[in-house]
Amino acid sequence: MNTGDEMTTTTRAQDPIEASIDPSPATLPPRIVPVGPGRTADDARTGSPDVAGVAAMPKVAAEAVSITYGTKLAVRDVSLEVPERSILALIGPSGSGKSTFLRCFNRMNDLIPGARVTGQVRLDGIGLMDPDVSVVELRRRVGMVFQRPNPFPMSIYDNVAYGPRRRGASDRAQLDELVERSLTRAALWTEVKDDLRRKSGLALSGGQQQRLCIARVLATEPEVILMDEPASALDPISTLRVEELMRELRELYTIIIVTHNMQQAARVSDRTAFFNMGEDRAGYLVELDDTRTLFTNPKNQLTEDYVSGRFG
């Protein structure tokens, strides 16, 4: 840890493409930062006080989050932290509240009538449940990719330019550049660059549509990307491409992915959180650890049973 780390962090925020072109290993922070439940007091005290503050600050954190739908408790008391530029996978059986929990981070639960979230969710330390938080601004910084690809019924170009345009971007050259950059980063550019404006986003294949949706999110220049089973509706080849893409995106973004597919979690994520459904049918966090540890040497018997395929 040195001041170089701090500088990279600020540079990245202003010009992410620079970082993607030259991901000099020395300037990137270590991928797996031991924070969260596994974090010890020693970790937090590493380094000089000011730098430690930057390094130890989780990008995203949930503090005692519970979610109810009407009278039904869906998620009970989940706390976890996600360090910047890492991938956290949420795994667990159906009904364990993974997707519901994921939607706290961009307050999509607000859209569901009767849904109530208690506890606190933080982005860069800022409480997202606070009444003065702009949900619109939050969702620009925390993008989301859905289970089923949902391109808009408009051209590929307009799909990608949708978010920036709603923010008032109208400069043609800048939009062109942003669209190309976003599609390139989503590994779709070469496939669609010849009929960007003519072809509807709906005319693409399922895998291409999902990458278009990822490009659409990238174009709003988020810091965190939430992915709700992004590959579950895709064929194996497209799934592989999306997984490759996630690993590339990790260089620039903090990613939280919900997946039913344990192999997928094992392949792409740095850390994995295992959710389970309790006796009261509410989802809760069983265990969170480095992905390798969680899969090979879980501490909890339930996790062990789940990752070895004995239930779920």
Binding site: V136, R141, M144, R148, Y162, R216
Partner: peptide, 12 residues
């Protein structure tokens, strides 16, 4: 899907 997709991009 289209509505949530749009709202999730930070639109009003």
């Amino acid at each position: 899907d289209l509505r949530t997709g749009s709202l999730a991009l930070g639109t009003t």
